[in-house]
């Protein structure tokens, strides 16, 4: 907890840069996959209470498509790629060439789920390898898990590890969107990187900030 309280604007800039580099690479991968222009917002780094964290992406009860993985190595933490249903449908429809695919229709087709899983693998992979190249830190991700459920139920998994030490979380939040529909708020995909509290020191050290 001590480390978190001592964070300065320089530290925040470092974390923003991490979000920037990670999400930029992921956006490029996505753009290549979909053959479509993908843009991103300036990363947000926030120190928020657990309840405020649950209010992102429309609130705890909003149904989203969530990809989750743990990272271990020089940095430990949780990473999420969260898509509103409308956006996930657009991506997967395009990927599997099926305009009727819908995450709201149960049972969800296996091919759509597996395409989403693969999309999660690719995007989180490019985010994390960019992060690792930039910082020189070793990062070992677990195989991503996929869940279509309430945002609160999904994101709270990432708060468990942090909750042993703190009641707040530092979230590196980057959103990506299709360039031609950027005015539509509900179709943004979010990357959330939630480093464990002990990992901030190694992140800052790797970039020469103490």
């Amino acid at each position: 907890m001590g480390q978190i309280e001592k964070i300065t604007s320089l530290h925040l800039d470092v974390l923003k840069e991490i979000g920037n580099i990670g999400a930029a690479h992921a956006a490029t991968s996505l753009s290549e996959l979909l053959r479509k222009k993908i843009d991103m917002h300036v990363p947000k780094v926030e120190m928020v209470s657990f309840n405020d964290m649950m209010e992102h992406v429309g609130g705890a009860e909003t149904v989203v498509v969530g990809i989750y993985l743990r990272i271990e190595g020089d940095v430990d933490g949780s990473m999420f790629f969260i898509l509103p249903i409308a956006q996930a449908n657009r991506f997967i429809q395009r990927l599997i060439n099926d305009p009727h695919f819908n995450f709201n229709e149960h049972p969800i087709s296996e091919i759509g789920l597996s395409a989403m899983q693969e999309l999660g693998n690719i995007l989180s992979g490019s985010y994390l390898s960019a992060l690792s190249d930039f910082t020189g830190l070793k990062i070992y991700p677990t195989v991503p898990g996929l869940s279509v459920d309430m945002f609160g139920a999904i994101i709270s998994i990432g708060l468990i590890e942090i909750s042993e030490v703190s009641d707040h979380v530092i979230a590196i939040n980057t959103s990506i969107f299709e360039e031609d529909i950027k005015h539509r708020n509900e179709v943004q995909g979010h990357f959330f990187l939630l480093p464990d509290p002990e990992s901030f020191t190694s992140i800052f050290k790797s970039l020469g900030v103490s």
Partner: peptide, 20 residues
């Protein structure tokens, strides 16, 4: 909210969202 508690008396109800 998450990691919170509260109490309620009738006719009110009590609710928590997004339990994983």
């Amino acid at each position: 909210g998450i990691a919170e508690l509260d109490i309620v008396k009738t006719p009110d109800t009590i609710r928590t969202s997004g339990l994983g």
